[in-house]
Nucleic acid binder design. Structure first.
Lengths: 342, 342
DNA sequence: GTTAGCACTCTTGATAATCGAGTGCCAATC
DNA sequence: GATTGGCACTCGATTATCAAGAGTGCTAAC
């Protein structure tokens, strides 16, 4: 990639930032007045023309100003964007918002995602902290009535789910013991994704306790273990995309795409670096061609573990998005590491 | 209200149903061809004209077909709508969807809400089953590591919330005993809405255990008790409203209105009957003037308890909405009653 | 290399013309 | 007296036309 002259860089940076702010194509006159450029609009026009031909800028139509092309955004993000510290206000907001979740990895991730969506006014996606082995770590069953009990399931990556369940006979020590025995041999240490409703039937039939007593309990285990899996990738702030005029009425299909989760999950998985910016059609999915996706990983105990991402229009405010995400992943990593410490 | 002639009823019913289906104003010709009416379009025009003057129909503009007025919808819902049984397919869908939640009141309500949103393609709102006294019933703290523990909080209306929490010293029997003592004297039996973060500070300071050991545990109680309150009224399927062309771009402000929750809560509270239909401006809020709200109560142990509601355009398919809601409230009432049984 | 000037292009918004669906009404009919 | 066919009329929606304005590209001068 040919190096750009200093002035071209300055012009490109200004076009990108003005366009991000206003959403309107920026013309030579406007650029002159809003930036410290020391030359006439004609000069800027010439430079812009060259940037256009080099592929950094686009003209929506002949008689309009310029907007950044994907290549332009890319150059801006890689070379021109000021590496700014997060601003104090946002930092405070994050610190305060995340505090009540301290100690619980899942809640930390959830808060982080919601904060990120609020700050960036884009959709935010989180994935749970998941090590190589993500297995069921503990199951507790605590009776709260003759027929009802609270069941709690904890996975090795710190996701905790709970629900009530009910059997038709009275809870007895025998039943509880039997349940814990089954739990110990069939569930503990197993990946939570591997417990299917079909298995439940088999297991319930194979034990010597009454099938119809044990079945609802095992079904509850299955339900909980499904929900730990469901909460591994979550999208928040989708409504923010609706107010982004960049999408017009294309926001709804985009939301539908995001909610399918599998493709999104693939996008995230294919991001190798700690911080990965994919602009427009750099994303493998045509549904994302007008969007940028920023994926940032957080580390637990020094291992890359989970991620938070931002999905928004290519016109998103990369400066703010990236500085917030850097701060958040750092904080999140430290807090989760400490929450998972023995 | 003056009684309508048999033919007028037939015409009104047809206009309502055709308009619900197509979203287009229905004209005299179209009505003839799509309904078994045994007369000419001119006759229909005369009748429609009268219905118009009586206030049951509206003309969006002089040279368009007719659409039902609010009064027209009202008459349709009260007198003309076939009281149809829920169709077999929807019934199956509900039964299958709700099964995995059996035993847990909160999950049952959540599933019901999501199913209702899916079926009606509208927003669905649920309120938790709440008796007169909704208090904290049980708190459990189960260590899962030297410094970490699972905390579970159960309210008297069957809402269960859990999270991990962490202290800086090792968990000891003393700490657990102390926690349960505090819990017993300050939390159990208290309305979950009354535990404020400020109280937590006071309580932590007032006990003889180390302030900094107990504080995070009490903060976790507070956090959980806040979340039991948050889940008392929940909106689902809001995205469905976006695809409803009736709202155009008014869907977003409507969603914002719904998410404020307080006014919505008032709408629900003011519904006395088991099944209450409010059409357009019958709702007290101008934000709902283009919407209908259907509120259906479910009963736990014979007492009216919680509700599920549908919010959608006045043009919603009342037949399907109402038949589904009747089936759901009945099912929900029975399942929750049984889940809460001692 | 830079700048002023000017002709050119293309969007935007407003205004006007046309089209068509659907009505209201009247006179004829059953 | 209710019903119907026929017809003029109305009004929204679509399309066409036009002027204004913003911004460019190019050229010639500095």
């Amino acid at each position: 990639m040919a190096e750009l002259s200093e002035r071209k860089k300055q012009i490109l940076a200004n076009v990108v930032e003005m366009y991000i702010k206003s959403g309107e194509p920026v013309g030579s006159k406007g650029l002159i007045s809003s930036s410290g450029l020391n030359c006439s609009s004609a000069t800027v026009r010439n430079e812009m023309n060259e940037l256009d031909q080099m592929g950094y800028l686009l003209q929506p139509h002949t008689s309009a100003g310029r907007i950044p092309s994907e290549k332009g955004y890319r150059y801006y993000v890689d070379n021109l964007m000021p590496v700014r510290e997060i601003d104090e206000f946002t930092k405070r907001m994050i610190d305060a918002g995340i505090a009540p979740a301290a100690g619980d990895p899942e809640k930390l991730v959830n808060r982080a995602r919601e904060l990120l969506a609020d700050i960036t006014k884009c959709a935010a996606v989180s994935t749970a902290p998941v090590g190589e082995m993500n297995v069921i770590r503990k199951i507790e069953l605590v009776p709260v009535g003759r027929h009802t009990a609270m069941m709690v399931l904890l996975t090795s990556n710190g996701i905790l789910k709970s629900r009530l369940c009910r059997i038709d006979t009275d809870f007895s020590v025998t039943i509880l013991e039997q349940f814990y025995k089954i739990s110990e041999s069939f569930f503990i240490g197993k990946p939570s994704g591997e417990i299917s409703p079909a298995d439940i039937q088999t297991i319930a039939a194979s034990v010597d306790t009454d099938y119809f007593v044990m079945l609802p309990l095992l079904a509850a285990v299955s339900d909980l273990s499904v929900s730990t899996n469901d909460s591994r990738i979550i999208i928040g702030g989708g409504a923010n995309l609706l107010s982004r005029k960049d999408y017009g009425d294309q926001a709804i299909p985009l939301l539908e795409f995001l909610n399918r989760k599998e493709p999104l999950s693939e996008v995230i998985r294919s991001s190798k670096d700690d911080l990965n910016v994919r602009i427009g059609s750099e994303n493998m999915f045509k549904q994302l061609e007008k969007s940028s996706v920023v994926v940032a990983k957080y580390s637990v105990n020094g291992d890359n573990s989970g991620s938070i991402s931002v999905v928004g229009p290519t016109r998103m405010d990369y400066k703010t998005v990236i500085s917030s995400m850097k701060y958040l992943t750092d904080l999140l990593g430290r807090l989760i590491t400490s929450a998972l410490e023995e």
